[in-house]
Computed example of a mutant assay.
Amino acid sequence: MQRITISIDDQLGQSLDRQVSARSYASRSEAVRDLVREGLEHWRAEDNPGDLCVANLSYIVDHRVRALPQRLAELQHAHHDLVAASTVVRLDHFHSMESVILKGATAAVHSFANQVRGERGVKFGALNLLAASTDHQHGIADHHHDEATHLRPAV
């Protein structure tokens, strides 16, 4: 068995202790092992073998982290081909929830999501990804698509 050491703030430690007790874990270590297993399984489930997807990336932003909102905005602009829409919900004086709707190549969506979730000050990043495919036979013959592509849910 490997031993690792992590540091967490007091509030998170207290929340963990409450859950350890409420869920009858024998120790913090048992609870953390289950959380790590669950997180790893969630990451594995995100890995989609399809080429295209539509996705929602949601995360909490701590505005006290220097230049974080600007870095996130620049990241979205750098990936304008993936970002279909975004919205911000202010939660309190220091935090907001951002939700970014993405569409495009699955690998590129994963890469973007990992960059955002990896930023210092971004918390609770969650990616909900749905496989998609192109729809060349969508039944409307009287219009032209330059470089635009219709996507449909993969079946």
Rank of each mutant, 00 (worst) to 15 (best):
Q19E: 15
D9N: 14
L16K: 07
G39E: 12
L91M: 13
A132N: 01
R23M: 15
A148Q: 09
N128R: 07
M1C: 06
H136K: 03
S24W: 01
V109I: 07
G39K: 05
V100N: 01
V61K: 01
I101R: 05
V109D: 07
P49K: 02
S96W: 04
D81S: 12
T5I: 08
L68N: 04
R66L: 03
M1G: 12
A141M: 11
A45P: 03
Q76V: 00
E41T: 14
S15D: 14
E30L: 10
D51C: 05
A148E: 09
T5K: 01
N56L: 12
R33C: 10
V54F: 04
G125E: 02
S58E: 10
M97R: 01
S99D: 13
S24N: 13
I140V: 14
A105Y: 01
E41R: 15
H63M: 04
L102R: 02
D92L: 09
D81K: 12
H144G: 03
D34V: 01
V20W: 11
L35S: 10
H136V: 07
Q14D: 00
V83P: 05
W43R: 14
F124S: 12
G104I: 04
L102A: 04
T149D: 13
D9Q: 10
D135F: 02
D92R: 02
S21R: 13
R18P: 00
H93C: 02
V116K: 02
Q76E: 11
R71G: 08
H80S: 11
A126L: 06
H145Y: 01
L57N: 04
I101E: 05
H145K: 08
R37F: 06
Q70C: 03
R64G: 02
T106P: 02
H79F: 09
S96E: 03
A148I: 00
A84H: 11
L12R: 09
D146I: 00
L127A: 07
A78R: 11
V109H: 06
R44K: 14
A141D: 15
S99W: 03
F124R: 02
T87F: 07
A45D: 10
F112T: 10
H150N: 09
H145S: 12
D34N: 04
T149C: 12
D17R: 08
I6H: 02
S111L: 03
A148S: 04
G139A: 06
H77T: 05
Q2N: 12
P153H: 15
A31H: 08
V155D: 15
V89K: 00
E98R: 05
H80Y: 06
A154V: 06
T134R: 07
A132F: 09
T5W: 01
V83Y: 01
A108V: 02
R28I: 13
N48R: 13
N128V: 03
A55S: 06
S27C: 11
K103D: 04
E74A: 10
T134G: 05
L72C: 00
V36D: 09
S27M: 11
P69R: 12
